[in-house]
């Protein structure tokens, strides 16, 4: 389990990286909006929300693209160094697919920030 080769957990985490990023982004933007609006933190905070959400969206979407490129290039835990070619192809395509899904969902989550006024 231990040693030079990445373990089960690392491999699984990388396989799911795109959607883990989505979950982190989602939790962050929802939590931020929720706390800012529920606690009525003046006007400066709500005004900042769209920009913070947009920034978080760019960062998370960018990271999901990094994962996608890593998968395309055959890098990353579970792909690089996997001796079984069928398993390597599998890990690579699922990692890449998950990253694509993560990317789309992150962008969708970010869209409302441009269109909807916070706390209304």
């Amino acid at each position: 389990m231990r040693g030079a080769r990445p373990g089960f957990l690392t491999k699984m985490l990388f396989l799911n990286a795109g959607l883990v990023l989505w979950a982190a982004h989602f939790g962050f933007v929802y939590g931020l909006t929720g706390v800012v609006c529920a606690r009525g933190l003046g006007t400066a905070w709500p005004a900042a929300v769209p920009f913070v959400v947009a920034f978080a969206t760019v960062v998370a979407a960018g990271l999901s693209l990094v994962v996608l490129f890593a998968a395309v290039l055959g890098r990353g835990p579970g792909i690089a160094g996997e001796p079984d070619p069928a398993l390597r192809v599998f890990w690579r395509s699922v990692t890449g697919g998950v990253a694509v899904f993560g990317f789309v969902a992150i962008v969708w989550s970010g869209l409302p920030a441009v269109l909807i006024r916070p706390c209304a």
Partner: peptide
């Protein structure tokens, strides 16, 4: 619930239909 918060969930509801 404020509309912006709802919209995040609306976006995720779209996403969940793709699979």
């Amino acid at each position: 619930i404020p509309q912006l918060s709802l919209s995040f969930f609306s976006a995720a509801s779209m996403a969940v239909s793709v699979p």
